[in-house]
Design a protein around this nucleic acid. Structure first.
Length: 894
RNA sequence: GGGCGAAUAGCUCAGGGGUCGAGAGCGCCUGCCUUACAAGCAGGAAGUCGGGGGUUCGAAUCCCUCUUCGCCCACCA
């Protein structure tokens, strides 16, 4: 039995949130127990990057997860929300490198060991902050299971996967052209090299025939003339009739003056450029493949280095050597022009790959890298979706997932970075032995020849560790108790931009290593953007720190705002310059709840039995109505949550609590609660029941406030709302008739209020209201329930009569009946007439002014269109107002 | 080049064949500091649901098309 206690008069979220959170922690509410016999419900957090602290995107994402988690916990599931963070290899390394740059040093100055040490410092700081932020918004994660992708245990799982895939022939070392970021100095996967539109040029270069007289030659169109020094051939389509006569011929590679052959390749598009393509195998992935298919042996001359500078090589003209690629392009064009070999330059817009972390143009680079064979891994992931074992909310993202898996290519997983899991491969240093040892731990010597070994310097793609998140966090490859109990999980809540990077790969890894999907539903939340629809980013400085919002408005306000504002998959717009406006909905609602709590606690009795135990004969219409509405909202909110319509659930309960419970029911029962009329005990019991039911429904969305109010409400209930049961609709209270009747009462009351407002009836003045017989049914209910409207409109008498012929206003009700309010007693008709007449006069004056303006030809022609438009709007609106005034004057018989 | 999404009140967005003669929050107008709440209460104004065509008894909702934004995928250099 909880005895009611008073609430502070002002709602101060910071005063309750920390303490409430601690209460949950102390009760061990967030810890999942593998021993429990409840059905589990598991979400693994998308581990935030330790690059920096969280922004509102995380605020949204984690609030949604917490809503689902808290809902399922209340539904009686054994809930596990597994938290953690991601080391975010390249991103974090870049951040720390930038810090070093401002300190006038660099990672190369420090050396690898000291640098990694430095990154760890950064990571401990941000990682700690991230976890605090998650707690601040109320996330009910099982903190005892917090993981980091570079934890020792986790790293073992990563190495294990590398070793297993290697031995399964699904992972290999290959020499080919990969995406290289010359700024980050690392290779990138296809997904990390993003296409961006760019205005460039198409250069038409003449390659003179080797046996020609120097005036003829073959025209080649290229966007990258600076790579031409690495050309090994020209190719055309084998069926291109224009070039049939060139079989066996050679051309001179301009400036380098090297003869190169003319070959054919089916890859060439005859319609593009000149139909003749230069082949530069070391600097273009497609050219590399073309070269591989050409008959005969070809070199792969490298003319651009890791810094995207031209190499010191005889193929490269002296004046070009050492230049960066952009300068080299200009210089090359100059030289070609001077040699008369530049035919023309056309502007050309095309998509170029850029580094997804620093946005530098990617330089294709020939190098040794490690790759994962994706096709075999993709198959089960594809089947899971096609057979309905994996579903997406909203559904359309499923097609994106399917398409990527269908077109999947091998995954370059090695990165030339220092921050990450170093690749568990050791190279033999022995003379002539090129053996590579792939193993969990460092071998003492080469397993083949016994020679000394050294470990691969590179680290693994950060996603090569995160794709194991759903099970590596649970102790895999050990067959842990957790794994047996909590894998597979249920819902993944994340943003659509990492479907490829993360979601699809997790499904692949789940099937491959555990033979089971990691989750069954992928819920995609939208992206949080600024008013210009730009994603939040550090560099733009347009982000909102969740902690800032929590400090200003409270975690519950933040949570309500993002949940109600984010339909599944739609973006959320937030304005950091308009914080009050952005969070108004949540802030106002939180304040409302607080004050409802205050009212109840000041008026409700300590004895608040369940309404089911009361004599229903004592219930008034309003009582039956609110009980019935409450059951319906329980059903609707539950249904919405089941269908992942979290925004619907939020606004359903919001409107029930505010519009129905607060604005109508609470107002109606005040006289009873205050003892002005009898029935206070019934009203008290019912309002406590309805309010505590609403608190249950609200808890997943506004956990702090709902818990705090719960703690103060009297009654016999579970001690913690966070661990209380989710409500189910009680059929006995569903009462369609009461709902209909009360709706009619509401319509009547509203009609009278409208009349009062429109005719300036003073707030204190009483009015009578009469209804047309058509509305007899409603009036009977109304008369029978006088108390229902006692407070609502200061209506004192409502009688079922034909309205007398006197001065008054009609108001039509939605059901077609009407109500008549005599005004003679309520207002001074004479005075109101004068007031209205005055207003009419003023309105006419204004209208005359506007009419003159609009009649002025000069104004119409010279003023800006929108100004004229505004005048027209004004005129239209004033005309309407004038009509309304004239109506009122007629009504009052002035 | 292929695909997806969006266009609804001044702003941010719900709704996706009849229940919408169109909703919410914010903003705006009018009146109220009514002993829970002015972060409030009561009343109100405001939208040819992007344009055009079609299907249907009926379209904001389905189909076609156009326009404008946004996103994703893509080996025409």
């Amino acid at each position: 039995m909880i005895t009611k206690t008073e609430l502070a008069s002002k709602y101060d979220p910071s005063a309750i949130e920390r303490e409430t959170y601690q209460r949950w922690i102390d009760a061990g509410l967030f810890s999942a127990s593998p021993e429990s016999d409840r059905e589990p419900y598991v979400i693994v957090i998308p581990p935030p990057n330790v690059t920096s602290v969280l922004h509102m995107g995380h605020g949204l994402n984690n609030t949604l997860q917490d809503v689902l988690i808290r809902y399922q916990r209340m539904r009686g599931r054994e809930v596990l929300w597994l938290p953690g963070t991601d080391h975010a290899g390249i991103a974090t390394q870049n951040v720390v490198e930038r810090q070093l740059a401002t300190e006038g040093t660099s990672r190369h100055d420090m050396g690898r060991e000291a640098f990694v040490e430095r990154v760890w410092e950064h990571v401990h700081r941000t990682g700690g902050t991230i976890l605090e932020q998650l707690k601040a918004i109320g996330s009910s994660c099982d903190w005892s299971r917090t993981r980091f992708t570079l934890d020792e245990e986790y790293s073992r799982a990563v190495r294990r996967v590398f070793v297993d895939l290697y031995h399964q022939d699904l992972l290999y070392r290959g020499y080919r052209v990969i995406h290289w970021c010359p700024r980050c100095h690392t290779s990138l996967s296809d997904e990390e090299a993003e296409f961006r539109e760019r205005d460039d040029h198409l250069y038409y270069i003449r390659y003179p025939l080797a046996d020609g007289d120097g005036t003829d030659g073959l025209l080649v169109a290229t966007t990258r003339p600076e790579t031409m020094y690495g050309d090994i051939a020209l190719v055309h389509h084998p069926e291109d009739e224009r070039f049939g006569h060139l079989a066996g011929k050679s051309v001179i590679l301009p400036l380098a003056n090297i003869p190169i052959p003319v070959e054919t390749s089916a890859y060439v598009e005859q319609d593009f450029g000149t139909g003749m393509l230069k082949v530069t195998p070391a600097h273009d992935p497609h050219d590399f493949e073309i070269a591989a298919e050409l008959a005969g042996e070809y070199d792969t001359p490298v003319v651009i280095d890791a810094d995207a500078r031209m190499v010191d090589d005889p193929r490269v003209p002296e004046g070009v050597r050492g230049l960066d690629r952009d300068a080299a392009r200009e210089k090359t064009i100059e030289l070609l022009e001077a040699a008369g070999l530049l035919e023309k330059i056309e502007p050309y817009r095309h998509a170029v790959r850029h580094c997804y972390r620093c946005h530098t143009v990617v330089e294709p680079r020939l190098s040794d890298q490690w790759f994962v064979k994706m096709k075999p891994l993709a198959e089960p992931a594809l089947q899971a979706y096609r057979q309905g074992r994996l579903r997406f909310v909203p559904e359309r993202w499923g097609k994106v997932y399917e398409n990527w898996l269908t077109e999947i290519r091998d995954w370059n997983i090695s990165r030339q970075l220092w921050w990450g899991h170093q690749i568990p491969a050791w190279y033999c240093e022995g003379e002539g032995c090129e053996h590579v040892t792939v193993a969990m731990e460092a071998p003492a010597s080469c397993e083949k020849c016994g020679g000394a070994v050294h470990q691969d310097e590179d680290v693994l793609d950060t996603w090569f560790s995160s794709w194991l998140w759903p099970f590596a966090t649970m102790g895999w490859p050990e067959r842990t108790v957790d794994l047996g109990r909590f894998y597979p999980g249920h819902t993944l809540v994340t943003a659509p931009d990492i479907i490829f990077f993360w979601v699809a790969r997790m499904v692949m890894a789940g099937y491959h290593f555990l033979g089971e999907r990691p989750f069954s539903t992928v819920y995609l939340n939208g992206v949080v953007r600024d008013p210009q629809h730009r994603a939040f980013s550090k560099s733009l400085g347009n982000g909102i720190d969740p902690l800032d919002a929590v400090e200003r408005y409270g975690a519950d306000a933040l949570r309500y705002t993002v949940v109600a504002g984010a339909a599944a998959g739609t973006d959320v717009i937030m304005d950091r310059d308009e914080m009050d406006g952005t969070f108004a909905a949540g802030r106002n609602f939180a304040n409302k709840l607080w004050n409802m709590g205050r009212l109840l606690l000041s008026a409700v009795s300590d004895e608040s039995p369940e309404p089911g135990s009361l004599d229903a004969a004592q219930f008034e219409l309003a009582d039956r109505w609110i009980l019935s509405r409450c059951q319906r909202v329980v059903a609707e909110a539950t249904d919405a949550l089941e269908r992942y319509r979290l925004n619907d659930a939020a606004s359903l309960v919001y409107h029930f609590v505010w519009d129905e419970l607060a604005d109508w029911y609470l107002e109606q029962i005040k006289p009873r609660l205050y003892g002005a009329i009898p029935g206070g005990d019934v009203a008290s019991a019912i309002v406590v029941h309805v309010f505590q039911t609403a608190l249950r429904l609200l808890h997943p969305i506004v956990p702090f406030l709902s818990e705090e109010l719960w703690q103060h409400l009297p009654g016999e209930r579970e001690p913690l709302l966070a661990a209380a049961a989710w409500p189910t609709p009680q059929q006995a209270f569903i009462d369609g008739e009461a709902e209909d009747q009360f709706a009619r009462v509401q319509a009547l009351v509203t009609a009278v209020r409208t009349v009062r407002a429109e005719y300036g009836v003073p707030p204190g003045a009483e009015v009578r209201a009469f209804a047309r017989p058509a509305n007899a049914e409603a009036l009977q209910a109304f008369n029978a329930e006088q108390r229902t409207v006692e407070r609502l409109a200061k209506l004192s008498r409502l009688t079922l009569e034909e309205h007398p012929e006197e001065v008054g206003a009609h108001q039509v009700l939605p059901d077609g009946s009407s109500v008549f309010v005599p005004l003679g007693d309520a207002i001074d008709v004479q005075q109101e007439c004068e007031r209205l007449a005055g207003e009419l006069e003023r309105m006419d004056k204004q209208l005359t002014g506007v009419a003159a303006k609009l009649g002025n030809q000069q104004f119409i022609t010279r003023a800006p269109a929108d100004v004229v438009e505004r005048e027209r709007d004004k005129e239209r609106s004033w005309r309407e107002q004038r009509e309304t005034l004239a109506d009122k004057l007629r009504t009052l018989g002035c």
